[in-house]
Design a protein around this nucleic acid. Sequence first.
DNA 1: TATTGATTCGAATCTAGATTCAAAACAAGA
DNA 2: TCTTGTTTTGAATCTAGATTCGAATCAATA
Lengths: 244, 244
Amino acid sequence: MRSDRESTTTRVGVPEQRDPTYHRNMPPATSSRGKDPASTRGGASSKSERTRERIVDATARVLNSRGYAGTRLSDIAAIAEVQAPAIYYYFSSREELVEEAVSVGLQRTMLLMREALDEVPESATPLQRIRVAVAAHLNTLLTHSEHSAAAVRTVAQLPQEMRDRQLTAHRAYIDVWRGLLEDARAAGEIDPDLDLRAALMIVLGALTWTVEWWDPDQGSLDRVIATAQSLIENGLSATAPSAA
Amino acid sequence: MRSDRESTTTRVGVPEQRDPTYHRNMPPATSSRGKDPASTRGGASSKSERTRERIVDATARVLNSRGYAGTRLSDIAAIAEVQAPAIYYYFSSREELVEEAVSVGLQRTMLLMREALDEVPESATPLQRIRVAVAAHLNTLLTHSEHSAAAVRTVAQLPQEMRDRQLTAHRAYIDVWRGLLEDARAAGEIDPDLDLRAALMIVLGALTWTVEWWDPDQGSLDRVIATAQSLIENGLSATAPSAA
DNA sequence: TATTGATTCGAATCTAGATTCAAAACAAGA
DNA sequence: TCTTGTTTTGAATCTAGATTCGAATCAATA
């Protein structure tokens, strides 16, 4: 069952052509002491890195409940247990922080999905792979990463530029799903009359929206996953459109 | 195909126990000249009423793209083609305005759903009624009422108190759906093993999320509706869990 | 056309929240 | 302990956006 909760280190696709004065000071993980330069991914180590991580995590949390515009630095600071100005030691602006949270979310969503799919045995049918994808998506959104949830739900609200930058990653994720559906259709497991694009988005919507209502106390995650899998598998499956 | 777009008159469930100084001035439709006092519902008439309507409509629009916190009076004003202060002639605060937009949205969603279901012939099976509900929900969200979309998608972001007030209406709507599913299950049309609550929310999520991606230019609404109906009907249906 | 209430608007006020600054507080090595 | 670079912070500054005000503008009616 994996560690506890992934860390938060991947750097935002820094706006290439911006003014050079970008970082006033030097956000740790980037250079400072020659520590372990290979730290592109996992768990934070130095105290500093952990603080940074707490901040990004907090951002995701707030983003989730308040939406893009409603995300205040003061709230983030409170959750991360620092003073608001401390945030500026790590990020040069609210926007940059938010974008990193979203970016991390999208990457993590993709990563967890890939990992899940990689574990599926070759012999599996496309439809079985879809079941796995459903479980992965829900697991990620509902328990593994608040970032993912924040990302997926917030993209639409982001200010133009930022959204455009993140859209790429978002598309890539959707493409994975599209691939799954296409395979299934090719294998004749899916109702060939289905509008694939629409079906895809409908399925993804169903999964994503869970964040809005799922409550750990209301019913187990596994139950939700099972329900979703069943609903989706049956929904997509080719059928004899007769039955009264 | 009905008029063009419903109007916007129903008043927000005014916070019963608040200070009496609530309305500084007298929002038209409420009293002013003894016009037609029976105007509790439909199309606006006086110029004033239409302005008010434009404002609420604009609010819904902004709410949709920017989320609760991101909804600025200046944007609303721009869309409604008035100066921001003009809004205060009709509403005593941003909050009140937003709440009305949401409230109207919820009521309209419910109304359109009821109308749609009322037209279904007695003879229809529960599953057929669900198909109708699916179409109604999508029609409402995607074309008949930006308010509905705003309402359904925004409730979660609203500040506590406001949300609590609107939650009632929201629940009522969900209950309609619950009823539909329960009937279908009772009639043996639905897989009896399905977790009804989860299934319900998953279906509703799938439908609601459409607002996030549907683009009139990308594919017709009817196509989306058809896809959703098929997906949902098959998904819910009782099945012989065998088939390779 | 003079009068009065209904509407709308430009300019001024207020406030929350982002951002900046200079001075602590800390940590690790000399 | 002293020195230096890293982190964090309290207090001050700045700005966008909500809200308030008093003065127009309008419309209908006496």
